[in-house]
Design a protein around this nucleic acid. Structure first.
Length: 555
RNA sequence: GCGCCCGUAGCCGAGUGGAUAAGGCGUCAGCCUCCGAAGCUGAAGAUCGCUGGUUCGAUUCCAGCCGGGCGCGCCA
């Protein structure tokens, strides 16, 4: 619809120039926007104001000439000049009806577009160490990453979702030691539990599980070997549980990428050697440093320590360069906001490999404050006690959790109240939106029962011109803006744009429902309204699915 | 101290440089013999942290200050 208006403005500008009303045929960067206030029309352009300098003419004068050159159209009811020179377009009701047939025919694809031009994008998220269960913070990151992937894909990007497994020797060895020590303790030996080991109770469970599998001989093994066995077993088991948790959170990754594989294939060594040959890595104090400072970082960073071991950063450089070698145009990482100091470092790696730093983007997700009835839930990392993602899913359910995680911009902190999330009332926005879907399904079934329609999934709108109520036209307008909202969400990488859109649509529907009956004694009008609400149902479903939330037929 | 992020009503918060700053919670007053009340309608509530600057126009961009969060390891 916006593009149609843009065309009308272009043509009018050209015609005004041809007629000699405007001195220049240059068309500046102008906006076609939907005004905040209905009194300002359906669409508005700042053409006259931004043209003032080019045309050397007062904005109002330009607007007058432009408006006088607009060709009459069935879509446009009237055009007004307002304020400092805005040109406001008021469309006829007829202009909006085609939206209904468009939605009915595109169905699950309505809202998708070619905005991304099939550009290859990778979204990497969660990527938690396989050393313990996922917690709330991972949940928010997971919801954000998964939705961003869905939205980009819907907007026409070629998206791959990836999980980076930090399974490098060092961390996994600590995990192995943790299990090994617990094993010894459970066998009655008096061993002090090391401070840098993982303290959670899940370690004890893993110790029991491995003892069951390997038998008591395990305890007699030489320590180094025993730790190794424990490490492998524990990492595999935890990763399996992480996969299950993510699965019940509705998330599937296209690829699980192992950090260890970067070492095994020699990529880490090769990258360091390459950087050294370009003099981007140098030696100081017995360590190898990457000159990240020349790329804008605060200081240079160590990639190989003076004890010969590589840092986490070393494999991260190799990993990000490897991603681009896989052909991605853009690589997006979803991180906890506490890692923001790391961005410059990775940008440096990306630039050093010859890519633009804009091709690497980081979504920083702020922390989640877990509450119960307004009071903070105590989480002691010292004791390894925390509320896991699994606990939350069991308590509040996938849909409520995901919707709340995406309810606001990720660059704000989020209070997640377990009591609130469980409530099935208007305090809980997920039900507000899902209720629309269930409610409409109810109406359609009723209409089918009364034999007004033979099937609840109409393929084409009927008697649309009977939709004359302002609430009806307003609903269609909101429906028609779904695609541009998806694009905006994709462009800004902000899934909460979809959340806000769904709330707006749901609110408009509930208001309409309370004011007007869909099923009336007038069968033509009823069919028209059924066409409309079916479209609302489909768009609600499409929007919810981008957020990974289900659209129930009944609640 | 340096760097990044945030500052919008009592609270939570939306807002591609545009005209009268969404919505929700909470408060107050209403709506079910009628398609699902997990819903709706109305009222009250804001010097958009402060001060300058850029602009025809700033909540939005820039600078400084104030307040909050996070980060500044040869940890991951």
């Amino acid at each position: 619809m916006k593009n149609t208006i843009r065309e009308i403005v272009f043509n009018a500008a050209k015609s005004a120039f041809d007629k000699g009303l405007l001195p220049s045929d240059e068309i500046p960067q102008m906006e076609i926007e939907t005004p905040k206030h209905k009194a300002h029309g359906d669409f508005s352009t700042n053409f006259a104001m931004v043209s003032a300098a080019i045309q050397k003419m007062a904005p109002k004068k330009i607007a007058e000439h432009l408006v006088s050159s607009i060709e009459a159209s069935e879509l446009v009811e009237k055009v007004e000049i307002a304020g400092p020179g805005f040109i406001n377009f008021f469309l006829t009701n007829d202009a909006w009806y085609p939206v209904i047939d468009d939605i009915l025919s595109k169905d699950v694809a309505y809202g998708s577009s070619n905005f991304g031009n099939k550009k290859k994008v990778q979204v990497q998220f969660v990527s938690a160490n396989p050393t313990g269960p996922l917690h709330v913070g991972h949940g928010r990151g997971a919801a954000v990453g998964d939705s961003v992937g869905n939205i980009l894909s819907f907007a026409g990007f070629d998206v791959q979702k990836e999980y980076y497994i930090n399974d490098s020797g060092r961390q996994i060895r600590t995990l192995g030691t943790s299990v090994w020590v617990r094993l010894q303790q459970q066998d009655g030996r008096d061993i002090l539990f090391p401070d840098d080991c993982y303290k959670g109770n899940y370690i004890k469970d893993i110790a029991k599980a491995i003892l069951e599998k390997e038998g008591p001989d395990l305890l007699q093994k030489e320590e180094k070997h025993g730790i190794e066995i424990c490490a492998r077993f524990a990492a595999a088991k935890i990763l399996e549980e992480i996969k299950q948790d993510l699965n019940s959170f509705g998330i599937e990754f296209d690829q699980w990428f192992s950090e260890q594989s970067l070492y095994d294939s020699g990529r880490v060594d090769k990258v360091i050697a390459d950087l050294k040959s370009k003099d981007l890595v140098f030696e100081k104090d017995g360590a190898q440093w990457f000159r990240t400072e020349i790329f804008g970082d605060e200081k240079d960073r160590v990639v190989v320590r003076n004890n010969g071991l590589t840092t986490y950063f070393a494999s991260d450089i190799a990993y990000h360069i490897e991603k681009f070698e896989r052909g991605f145009d853009t690589v997006i990482d979803v991180w906890g906001a506490d890692h923001h100091g790391y961005i410059k470092r990775i940008e440096a790696s990306v630039e050093a490999s010859g890519k633009q730093k804009e091709q690497f983007q980081v979504i920083l997700v702020r922390l989640v404050n877990l509450l119960r009835g307004g009071k903070p839930v105590q989480m002691s990392t010292r004791a390894g006690e925390f509320v896991t993602l699994k606990n939350i899913l069991n308590e509040v359910g996938k849909d409520a959790a995901r919707f709340l995680f995406l309810s606001r911009s990720y660059d704000s902190g989020l209070d997640f109240d377990l009591e609130l999330a469980k409530q099935k009332n208007s305090d809980n926005p997920v039900y507000y939106v899902q209720y629309v879907h269930a409610r409409i399904t109810g109406i359609l079934l009723k209409a089918q029962e009364r034999e007004i329609i033979s099937h609840i999934d109409l393929k084409q709108g009927e008697y649309l011109e009977l939709l004359q109520e302002p609430e009806e036209i307003n609903l269609i307008k909101i429906l028609s803006s779904f695609t541009e909202n998806v694009e905006k969400s994709a462009k800004t990488l902000h899934p909460h744009v979809i959340f806000t859109y769904l709330m707006t649509l749901a609110s408009a529907f509930h208001g309409y429902y309370n004011k007007h009956k869909v099923i009336t004694h007038d069968s033509n009008l009823t069919q028209a309204r059924l066409s409309l609400v079916l479209c609302v149902k489909k768009v609600i479903r499409n929007g919810l699915s981008l957020l990974g939330v289900s659209a129930p037929e009944r609640m």
